[in-house]
């Protein structure tokens, strides 16, 4: 889109739209600096030694040491925690997308009594703070013997992510032209076939959006795992970072390295999917 914009000649002084004025860049740079300076500091700090950091907290690495990152990466519990985070996040994403598509498809493409009531019923979940339910949730999972299992994190996460997922998906699924459904019907395809062969491929951007939101929410989740994963072998990365930082308080460089490595996957994931997220949210915030 930048290309097309630049293709338009905009040299005329009368045009108030100077596409790339120095001021725009200055402001954008300032925004970027505020956003990433602390993060860069953490990543770079991981290449220093703790004495270096203590002597001059704001300095650059001199010399650069790989030891901190090497230490974290050779710890088996870092990889175990990354695996736990990955399994839980993937399970959550899969569950959210499967259940969300089913419900959103019905709410978007079927006409039936109680449809709006069902939709309101789901959107009500947006008002339920996940935090408020955490204590009874813990008790319930304990009674169900699910404490210290992946399910104890995945199932509630799926449940609490469903309202947002349905709110985002429904307008997308509604927007698929009725003619396509009629054409499918004429070809003898039922609505399930229509869902499977036409709706799902067409709504891939929206599915990716809700999938990413669910994945990142799960990957970053802290409170629920903190309460239900007492078993250290099941700990996820956020728990691992928190434990490491309170266990080795004097190892500042180690904490910085661990924190950087824990940040990395979410950053990479988001970098690849940013367009999808903004695009996918358009339907939900339509004015």
């Amino acid at each position: 889109m930048t290309v097309t914009a630049n293709a338009v000649p905009s040299t005329s002084a009368k045009r108030p739209f100077a596409w790339s004025s120095p001021l725009t860049y200055a402001l954008a740079l300032a925004v970027a600096a505020v956003s990433i300076t602390p993060v860069v500091y953490v990543i770079v700090g991981g290449f220093r030694t703790t004495p270096q950091i203590v002597a001059d907290p704001a300095g650059l690495p001199d010399p650069w040491v790989w030891d901190n990152y090497a230490r974290v990466l050779t710890r088996s519990d870092f990889w175990g925690q990354a695996l736990n985070s990955g399994v839980i996040a993937l399970g959550t994403t899969l569950g959210v997308v499967l259940l969300g598509v089913g419900a959103a498809f019905v709410l978007a493409r079927y006409t039936f009594r109680g449809r709006e009531a069902l939709y309101t019923f789901f959107t009500l979940g947006l008002l339920f703070p996940a935090g408020a339910a955490i204590l009874p949730l813990y008790l319930m999972l304990r009674d169900l013997n699910l404490i210290n299992s992946y399910y104890a994190v995945m199932l509630p996460q799926i449940a609490f992510q469903l309202p947002l997922t349905i709110v985002i998906l429904r307008p997308f699924l509604s927007a698929i032209p009725r003619e396509l459904e009629d054409a499918a019907a004429i070809d003898g395809t039922g609505r399930i076939g229509f869902l499977w062969r036409i709706v799902l491929p067409l709504s891939r951007p929206a599915l990716v959006t809700v999938g990413i939101l669910a994945f990142v929410a799960s990957w970053n989740a802290f409170l629920l795992p903190l309460l239900v994963l007492g078993d250290a072998s099941l700990h996820t990365l956020p728990l691992g970072v928190q434990n490491f930082s309170s266990q080795y308080t004097s190892d500042t460089a180690g904490i910085l390295a661990f924190t950087s490595l824990a940040m990395l996957p979410a950053l990479l994931f988001f970098t690849f999917a940013e367009k999808q997220i903004v695009g996918g949210l358009q339907g939900a915030v339509k004015g």
Binding site: N220, P238, L239, T271
Partner: peptide
């Protein structure tokens, strides 16, 4: 845009 979103993407804990 990506850079502006960085803080939001990072885990609360980190």
């Amino acid at each position: 845009r990506l850079l502006a979103f960085v803080p939001y993407v990072l885990a609360e804990v980190t």
